[in-house]
Design a protein around this nucleic acid. Structure first.
Lengths: 244, 244
DNA sequence: GCCTATGACTTGTATCTACAAGTTGTTGAC
DNA sequence: GTCAACAACTTGTAGATACAAGTCATAGGC
C-alpha cells in the first residue's frame, strides 16, 4: 500500500478546505456521503476526519455534522516553531542572516538531548533573525543528521527552514520549550546590538517526531524589548504564541 | 454508556504512567495483552493509545511496541497558577514572606487589564516566594475587589492563596501569561538577593473566570538560576509547568 | 400559535475479521 | 563466528456490522 487510504482522504479534504471549496462555517459532507464518494468503508473516513479535527481544521459533535473552522486557529504550533510564520502573523517583515552552518560533533549535553553518540557529527546552524530589519533573536540550532543533511544544499536566507523541512516530509510533531532569562554575553551583545549583560529571554527547545525521536535542539535568545512569549490556557487547553 | 471504554482505558494507562508503574522508557503492554486484560476488542485499545500518543506520553512505530516517553507534561491547571502546588510537584519546600497587602487604586494599565474604573480600589499584594528557603520569585498581584476582600482576613503566609480562593468557590478558569526578560531594579535586587541589573524572567499573568471576567493581574519575577518555565506542546495540545 | 413527540439522520462506540508491513529473535547454512 | 532466511511476534490499515446517543425538522395535539 503506497499511501494509506485515510491519509489520502485527509489530504483531499484538507485541500478542499484550503482551496475554499469548503468555506469556513460550511458543514462537511456526512460520513456516509464520503464513504460513497470514495468507495471506502467508514473506518478510513473517520480516521481522516479525526486527523483534520486534530489539526483544528474542523469541529463538530455527536449527531451533528463536522463544520469547517477558522483555519488560523490551527496556527499556534507552527507559529511557535517558525519564526517566519510568526512574523507574518504579527505583520512584521522577517529577515535572517546566517552566521554559520557547520557539521561537527555537538556539545555532550546537546548530544544527550538528541540521543546521539558523543562522536556523531550533527548539523549546527547559527542565525540572526530580524524583524523589520531590527535584530530580534539569535538562534543556535543543532539538527540530527537525518534532518540536517537536507539543509546543506539550501539557501538558508531564502525562506522558512521549517516550511522546507515539512515539505520534505519531516515529522516535527512535539516540542518542549524551556524559558529563562540570561545576561547577554559578548557574542550575543554584538549580534543583537545590545549592551553586554543586557537581559535576554532564552528559549531552549527540543523538537521530536510523533514517534518520540528527537530531531532538533535549539537555543534561541530574544531581545525582550522586541519579542515576548504569550501562553493562553484554560483548564482543558493551552496554546502559545510569540508576540512583538 | 457512562464513560466510553476507550476513555476509561486511556485514563487507566495515563494513571499507570503518571504513578510510575510504567516508567519512562518502558514498553507499553502489547495491544493484544491490553485486549485480554480489559476484555475489550482492539478498537478501544487503539483509540486509547492514540489519545496518549497525541498527548505526547507514548511513542513507537509499526511493528514496535509503544514506549513511555519522557514527559513532565500536562500537569493540572493549578500547578502553574499556584506556586505552592508547583513547589510540591518538584519536591521543594515552598515558603513565602508577605511584604505588603494594601487596598489602593491600581496603576491605570492594571486597572484597564482588570476592566476596573481608574478610581476603584483593588487589593494589591507583594510577596516574596521561597524554595527551600532561597528567594525564588517576587510576586506583585492585584485582585479585583470581589476576590480581594476575602484575602484581607487571612494569614497569607500560611498556605496557598489559590487553594483558599478555589475552596471559597472562586471561578479561576483561564489565564494568559506573557513572558519576557528584564533587569532587576533596586527593589527586585534587594528582595531576591541578586545584583541590581541581573536578568530576571518576568511573567505577567491575567487570570479570568470562565465567563471571561478578569479576576487577577500579576507581575511575577523569577530568579532564573532557581526557576524556569517549561512548555510542552504537540500539534494539538500544549501545557506549561514551572521547573526548578 | 405553541409545544411535544416522533422519526429520520447524524456521529460515537464497539465488535469481529483479515491482511499488510515492520521488528526481533532464532535457526541453519556457510 | 558470521550472515541470511525464516518464524513469530508487533502495529497499521481496511472492511463489515450493530447499536447507542445526539440533533433536527416536521407532524400532530393542545
Amino acid at each position: 500500500m503506497e499511501t494509506p487510504l485515510h491519509t489520502a482522504l485527509a489530504a483531499e479534504l484538507r485541500g478542499r478546505i484550503r482551496s475554499g471549496r469548503l468555506a469556513v462555517g460550511d458543514p462537511m459532507p456526512s460520513e456516509s456521503e464520503l464513504c460513497r464518494e470514495f468507495g471506502s468503508s467508514r473506518g478510513p473516513v473517520r480516521q481522516a476526519l479525526a486527523t483534520l479535527r486534530d489539526e483544528g481544521l474542523i469541529g463538530g459533535g455527536q449527531g451533528r455534522r463536522a463544520v469547517v473552522l477558522d483555519s488560523v486557529a490551527s496556527q499556534p504550533f507552527e507559529t511557535f516553531l517558525s519564526f517566519s510564520r510568526w512574523a507574518q502573523l504579527i505583520g512584521r517583515a522577517p529577515g535572517q542572516r546566517t552566521q554559520e552552518i557547520a557539521v561537527r560533533r555537538p556539545d555532550p549535553a546537546v548530544a544527550a538531548a538528541l540521543h546521539l553518540d558523543a562522536d556523531t557529527p550533527a548539523v549546527q546552524l547559527v542565525r540572526l533573525r530580524l524583524l523589520d530589519g531590527v535584530p530580534a533573536m539569535l538562534e543556535r540550532t543543532t539538527f540530527v543528521p537525518s534532518i540536517g543533511r537536507a539543509l546543506l544544499d539550501v539557501d538558508l536566507d531564502a525562506g522558512s527552514i521549517y516550511a522546507y523541512l515539512i515539505e520534505r516530509g519531516a515529522d516535527l510533531h512535539a516540542a518542549r520549550h524551556t524559558l529563562d532569562a540570561i545576561a547577554a554575553d559578548t557574542e550575543d551583545a554584538r549580534l543583537l546590538d545590545v549592551p553586554e549583560g543586557a537581559p535576554l529571554l532564552r528559549e531552549r527547545r527540543l523538537t521530536a517526531s510523533s514517534t518520540g525521536v528527537p530531531l532538533e535542539w535549539s537555543d534561541d535568545r530574544y531581545r525582550s524589548d522586541v519579542a515576548t512569549v504569550t501562553i493562553t490556557n484554560t483548564r482543558s487547553r493551552a496554546a502559545m504564541v510569540r508576540s512583538g
